[in-house]
Amino acid sequence: MTNTIETYLKQTCSVQTASGYLFTINHFLKTNPKAKRYKYQDIVNYMDEVSQKQANIQYRIRILSAIKKYYDYLVIVGQRSDHPCKRLTIKKPNHQSVQVQDLFTGEELLLLLTRENRYQHLDTRNNVLLSLLIYQGLTSEELTRLEVKDVDLDNGTIYIKASTNLNRRTLELKNKQMLMFAKYINEVRPVLNKYKTNKLLLGKLGRPLQVDSIHSIIEPLKALFPERNLNPRTIRMSVICNWLNESKIPLERVQELAGHKWPSTTEKYIKANAENERELINRYFPM
């Protein structure tokens, strides 16, 4: 049971995120004793005060994300029936937004798993690789860094190492991935592994896959969408967009799934359905 805001944050965020949000929320409540009854305009006014004290966009986005969590909690425990700032956002200046209309739906991405291969053993390997693209939204670089030890079939998870631009994370595997991963690791990969490497994904000659190899695997699939730009990057972008807009996963959770360091990076993938609110916040934070 969610008894306190601290418990709620620990249940819905990573340990580090929960700690940061709790600090921000406590400061917000201390300086705004009537916050429990705040309306939309009250929060816009508060964010206006924040912007006057701190021009850093990422800092302000972090504060707003924490405040949103506070009102999420109030709604869940029944202390409020409405969320006063759920759609309130802060746009990052001079930052090109994602053209979400050019991306692929979840149903379209599943078509990528229908490809057949002429080389023995590669069907299973390609299905493993493609499933990590369309279900976990990994980058090409993350795929090349994967090792066998990163896959935990007992718990149904895969560990993704941190990089310069992305956070580390442990992601759940889909039930439909479990059999293909078990077959690949236990039957197919030992046949391919001529060089005794620990890397998970191997080419037909036994060497670890490189980024160029992954792009080559995607290349024949472009015929499915001849008028659109299909590559590992647009697949990942589509997955993130679908998490937010098709599956309605909360932004903070999508940020963690994608490994984004900042909420503003994830926010770019939200389809415009509250343009009036965005215009209002832009007036309070002139670019």
Rank of each mutant, 00 (worst) to 15 (best):
K92V: 06
S131F: 02
G206I: 04
K39N: 11
L200Q: 02
T157K: 11
P232W: 01
V211Y: 04
N282A: 15
Q120N: 07
V15D: 11
K92S: 14
N94D: 08
K53L: 10
T89Y: 04
K69D: 02
G106T: 11
I249M: 09
N45Q: 12
K196Y: 10
Q177I: 03
Y159Q: 11
R278K: 15
T24D: 14
T17H: 07
H95S: 14
P208T: 06
M1V: 10
I61M: 05
T2M: 11
R60N: 15
Y21I: 00
D152H: 11
P232F: 03
R145H: 13
S216A: 12
N167F: 02
R62D: 08
Q52T: 01
T234V: 12
E277F: 13
I217L: 07
D154R: 12
L209Y: 03
N242V: 08
S14E: 11
R207C: 01
A66W: 00
T105M: 04
G203M: 06
T7C: 09
H27G: 02
L103V: 08
K34M: 05
K199G: 05
I57C: 07
I5Q: 06
N94R: 11
I63M: 13
V211P: 00
W243A: 05
Y119E: 05
Q54G: 03
T164M: 10
T234W: 07
Y195T: 10
K36S: 09
I218D: 00
R168C: 09
T265P: 00
N45S: 14
L109P: 01
L202R: 08
R236T: 01
T266L: 10
E116V: 13
L146G: 02
G156V: 05
R278C: 09
Q41M: 13
N276E: 14
G206F: 05
L88D: 06
K68W: 00
Q255R: 15
M180Q: 13
K196P: 01
N32S: 02
E6C: 08
A162D: 07
V211I: 14
K174Q: 13
S216K: 15
Q99V: 10
W243N: 04
G203N: 15
E256Y: 08
L173T: 04
A182K: 15
T2Y: 11
E108A: 03
D82C: 05
V254E: 04
K36Y: 07
K91A: 12
P84E: 07
K268I: 12
N45H: 11
L103E: 06
E6A: 15
C13Q: 15
T12A: 09
K268T: 12
S213W: 00
V128H: 01
R253Y: 07
R62E: 09
I61G: 13
I158T: 01
P220A: 09
L109H: 02
L202Q: 13
Y195V: 13
Q96K: 14
D82N: 09
A162W: 04
A35T: 03
T170A: 10
D72K: 06
D150C: 01
K86M: 10
L200Y: 04
I67F: 05
